Computed example of a mutant assay.
Amino acid sequence: MQTFLELKEFCKLVHLNEDVVKGMMANGALNFKEEEGKIYIEANQGTFSVVPSTVNSKSAMINSMTLAGESFIEKTIGTILNLHEKVLDAKDETLEALKNENKFLKDALYSMQELYEQDRKTIEVLNEQLKNAREDAEFMKRKYKLMWNKTIETFGDARSQKINQDNSQKVD
């Protein structure tokens, strides 16, 4: 497949003036064609003709450019594959880290739930003990009140009898 460029475009591409390019056309170093008053130069062959070289080095240059192009493509593909592999590894590491974090949080939640249950049971036991202690305190209050009332009555009766005896002895 041949690609033709207009004379001015070709000159800009190879950084040569039109006189030099026309001289190369006259020598037969460049393939060209004329259509509608414009000169078109074959781009592929023309760019290799502009570079000074011998006949043997032209084929070597083409082969080296082909090999360099293939090598560049292979290196680029290898780099892309390597980067892709690294991205996949990083993704796997991230997923593993998230799984470990989720497991840790899950275990922590279960532990907190167990502690909550133990605390709730402890609170129930302490409330029961407090209720029993209040009942014991009320019972002791009633018991001592009854005992003191009985003591006061007994002591009061004995004292009033003594007072009555003392008063009756004084009167006599």
Rank of each mutant, 00 (worst) to 15 (best):
L16W: 00
A108K: 13
F48T: 14
V51I: 14
E18T: 14
N63R: 06
T76P: 04
E18S: 13
C11E: 05
K12M: 09
T54R: 03
G69Q: 03
R142G: 08
T76K: 03
I62V: 09
N132D: 15
I39F: 06
K121E: 13
M25A: 05
Q45N: 11
L115Y: 08
L13Q: 02
Y40G: 00
D119C: 13
E36Y: 07
A26S: 08
A97G: 03
E128N: 07
K91D: 11
M65C: 15
V51S: 10
L105Q: 05
K99G: 02
S64N: 11
E114N: 06
L67E: 10
G37H: 01
K99W: 01
H84V: 10
T54H: 02
A133G: 04
Q129K: 02
V21A: 00
T76S: 08
D119F: 13
A90D: 12
S49I: 01
E42S: 05
K58Q: 13
A137I: 08
N17A: 00
H84K: 11
Y116S: 14
S49H: 00
S71Y: 14
L30H: 00
E9A: 14
L88A: 03
D19T: 09
V125P: 00
L88V: 04
A133E: 06
F10I: 04
E135V: 15
N132M: 12
L95K: 07
E135M: 12
L67D: 10
K58L: 15
S57R: 05
E9W: 02
T66Y: 12
T79Y: 06
A43I: 04
